[in-house]
Structures are given as C-alpha cells and as structure tokens.
C-alpha cells in the first residue's frame, strides 16, 4: 500500500459517501444518473465476486472495503430507483447503458490476461468502470448544470482513479508491478473527467455553480 492508493481509496469512499448524503439529506436524486450508479454496482459485484465464492472469514480491511463498496452502491441504486424514484430524472438520464456494457463485455473476452471466468469478469469490470461515468456526464450536459454537491461527488470520483495512476507509476518504479489493462483503462477513465476537472477548478472552487453552455 502506498500513499497514492491510500488517498485514492479514501477519495473513492468520499465520493460514495457524498452521493449517499446528497440523496439522503435532500431526499432527491435530481441531477444524478441512475444508470451510472447501476454500472458502478455491476463493476463492484463483478470485480469482487470472490467475496461470494470462497468467503474467506479472515476479516482484513480489503474485504471490509469491498463489502462497503458493494453495499453502498446497491443502497444508492435502491434510493434512486425505489425510495426517491419520483425525483429520478429519467428523461435526461437517457444514454443507452447497453452501448457501454456490450463493448466492455466483448473487449473483456478479447483482451484479458487469462481466459477464465473470474479473470474475464474482473477485466469486464475494469473496462466498464472506465466508461461508467459517461451517463452522468451526459445527464449534466443535457440539463446544462450540476448541483455543487454533485460536482464535489464527481471531483472525488474522478480523483480516485487519477490517484491510482500515480499509484501505478509508484508501483512500476519501486515494485516493478504493472497491470497494463488496469492502467490503460484507468487513463481512459481519468481523461473522460478532464473537461469536468477544468470546470470544477475554474468554477466550483471559486464558489460558482457549473452551468454548461446549453
């Protein structure tokens, strides 16, 4: 574990917590893409499938973190699609998730390190996570604005994988550990946040709200 991965995981936890708090406190999921949250839940379940298969009772932080990620993302989907369904902005959350899931699944079958079920599921989860934020960014571009709290969520979510890139550089240099698939997908994922990062740094930091030119 290095400082980059530690802060990356903390940033990821913060993102999940910020979103849960926003929905719970405002009792509304306006401006939140339910599809992105569903895709994240699928990512966690397919990536941490080993938790369900051989549930090793030894409780270390990694197992606890995985359980937190899965339960928090499933609970977030429950809030969006059931509890606060009335506030879900379905017509703006209109990016076809199939266009992200099918290519990720296809690519996972073509480009992977080992052709076995667990590895394919893990690879699918990595590819899907890289594009899972697209419905959320698409929704913001359709509504033309993002609530400040949602911007903080996106900033934390984008920073997590950006910090992981630093972690991979660190591990390559000091541990000669490299996982090309995760690195390439992580770079693509972070690039997708670039224009949002620019808006966040130039606007939200100064206390303004993000409003996109309609």
């Amino acid at each position: 574990m290095n400082i980059f991965r530690l802060f990356g995981d903390l940033s990821h936890l913060a993102a999940i917590a910020i979103l849960l708090l926003k929905i719970w406190k405002t009792r509304s999921c306006a401006g939140v893409s339910g599809k992105t949250q569903l895709l994240f839940a699928v990512c966690f379940i397919t990536r941490y499938i080993d938790l369900f298969l051989h549930f090793v009772s030894l409780y270390n932080t990694e197992k606890v973190m995985k359980l937190i990620y899965i339960s928090a993302s499933v609970f977030t989907c429950y809030l969006i699609f059931f509890k606060f369904k009335a506030t879900y902005d379905g017509n703006h959350d209109s990016m076809r998730a199939e266009f992200l899931i099918v290519p990720a699944a296809g690519l996972a079958c073509l480009i992977n390190t080992k052709f076995d079920a667990i590895e394919i599921l893990w690879t699918f989860s990595i590819y899907l996570e890289a594009v899972a934020i697209l419905p959320q960014l698409f929704l913001i571009s359709k509504t033309g604005e993002a609530e400040t709290i949602t911007s903080h969520y996106l900033f934390a979510q984008g920073s997590y994988r950006a910090l992981y890139i630093l972690n991979w550089i660190y591990r390559y240099h000091y541990e000669s550990h490299v996982d090309t698939i995760a690195i390439v997908a992580g770079v693509v994922q972070t690039i997708l946040y670039c224009d949002f990062f620019y808006l966040y740094i130039t606007k939200v930091v100064k206390g303004q709200k993000i409003v996109l030119p309609a």
């Binding site: 990694e62 995985k66 390190t113 080992k114 972690n167 550990h177 996982d179 995760a182």
Partner: peptide, 10 residues
C-alpha cells in the same frame, strides 16, 4: 515475465 498476477488492488 512470471510476475504473479495478483489482484491486490480494489
């Protein structure tokens, strides 16, 4: 390279 493929990241 025979580095073990460990999934030790979240």
């Amino acid at each position: 390279d025979c580095r073990k493929q460990t999934k030790d990241e979240l």
